[in-house]
Amino acid sequence: MIRINCPYCGERDHSEFSYGGDATINYPSLDASEKEWTEAIFFRKNIKGFQFETWHHSNGCRMWLVVERSTVTHEIKSIKPCHPDLQKVVKNNK
């Protein structure tokens, strides 16, 4: 029963969101090698504790968010838009 504080919409139930995945992956360029892509796509850490992950406010403003969440307690430490320009907008409006 996670509550996610969307920077645009406010605090909402997690049922409004869709889970994305690991937010820390640096996706290789499109012309990068198969090996680099394999690393990026298939090799994941199984983190016990806080991890950065993406969530999509799919039944809300449609913003993709970076959520810092504990895999043990579901506690959420931080939330920000994925897009750097939106991060700036959110910061300026605070």
Partner: peptide
């Protein structure tokens, strides 16, 4: 498409 535009190809 939204994910790619908001996270990868900003």
């Amino acid at each position: 498409l939204e994910e790619l535009l908001q996270t990868r190809w900003t």
